[in-house]
Structures are given as structure tokens and as C-alpha cells.
Amino acid sequence: MKTPHANSRVVADRSPHSRRNFLRKSGMGIAAASLFLAGCADDDDPIMMDNTVNLGSGDLGVLNYAFALEQLEAAFYATVLQGGYFSGANADEQQVMRDLADHERAHVDFLFAAISSVGSAIPALEVDFSSIDFDSRDSVLGTAQAFEDLGVSAYNGAGRLISDPNHLVVAGKIVSVEARHAAAIRTLNSGGNPTAFANSEVVDSNGLDLSRTPAQVLAIAGNYVVTPIDASGLPQ
């Protein structure tokens, strides 16, 4: 059975293609005015522009970018805990899923509080998990692996955009935990393969992990995030 727990109400009248395309454009940093025109041309979705989320600029923008990704992960694991895979999983896998749900929730709660203390945190994003079968081990672990590897690459790529050393260190505190998650999930998802945790899919010949720009990350995240995100204000 597919997606008994997914939030799918927002996707019924929306074209995934236009949404992805939209996010890709926003991730590339085109101006807000251009985004508006692009949105207006998209006649089948007139409300899209109304809920576009602007990440903002400077360190605040980068923290909001992290907040957006953590929202996606937290929503995912919260849904995993409601699904058939989790209820039938062995003790180790249940512990991992519970821990990951807690960690991502802690990241969300912290980032919201930290951003709100100095500026405006972006609102809750709408997600679309209709492509995930939360009763299926393969579907859940495959998605978890994609999200964790994506998170690692996102923080690795965002570090250089940060100005305040304290913000950089906090991002570092989070990214290594995401990498710990990624390694654990990769091992589970591969049936215990002894090299899946850091194989050549994610670590290159120099021993370096993946790094992605916000544009690259948001293009991938757009497969699951319904709310349009304007990343044009992020530091380049």
C-alpha cells in the first residue's frame, strides 16, 4: 500500500514537473521578479507564488537553507515512525529510525529558535511524500539514504557561504551527525555490505565526500518539497 501517511493533499492538482522546474530556477538564484513572471506563466498553479518562501540573505539565509533541509528530513522520519516498515522492523533498525527522527527534530527546533532570535525563520514547508511507500523497507531506506547523503553534501557545500565562525562550527556539528546517519543507513540499505557506508558513490579518489551547491541541493529536494523556495539571496 502506498503513502497511507503521506501528506498528499497539496499535490493533487499540481504538476510535479512544473514544481521541479520552478525550484530549479529558484535555486539558480534568478531574481524574485523573474520568479514571479515564471510563476505567472504557470497557469495551472495560480497559488504557487503566494507561498513562495524566500530564504533570505547572508548567514541568516544559509541557516534558513539548513532549516529547510532539516524540515524535510524531520517530516520524513516522523512519517516513517507511523508506517508499516517501522512497526515491523527489527530492534536495531527501530532504534536507528527513532534516533534519526529525534536528531532531525532537534535540528529543526534548534535552527528555528536560533534563527528566530536574530531574524525571520522560514515557515513550515509543505512536503509531498507520495512517491515513498512507508510500508516498504526498500522505499524507506532508499529515501533515507538519499536524504542523508543530500544533507551531507548540502552542508559541505554551504560551509564556504557562512561568514560567522560560530555559525560555521554549528553547521559542522550537524553535518558530521548527518554523515554518521548516512553511513548507518547505507549499511542497512545494502543488506550489511561492508563498504556501502562510504563507497565510491559518495567518496571520491581523493577521499573527499560529496559537496553540492544550494542550487543543486534544492533541485533534488524539490522532488519532495512542495513549497517553492527562493534561494536567490544566498551568498554566492
Partner: peptide, 14 residues
């Protein structure tokens, strides 16, 4: 350095 850092974290977790 961050790309090395996260590889070390993968190692540690494993």
C-alpha cells in the same frame, strides 16, 4: 576540509 571531515564521520559511525 569539510569533505574530509564528513568522511571521517562516516568511518566513525561504521
Amino acid at each position: 576540509a569539510l569533505q574530509i571531515h564528513s568522511v571521517e564521520a562516516r568511518h566513525a559511525s561504521m
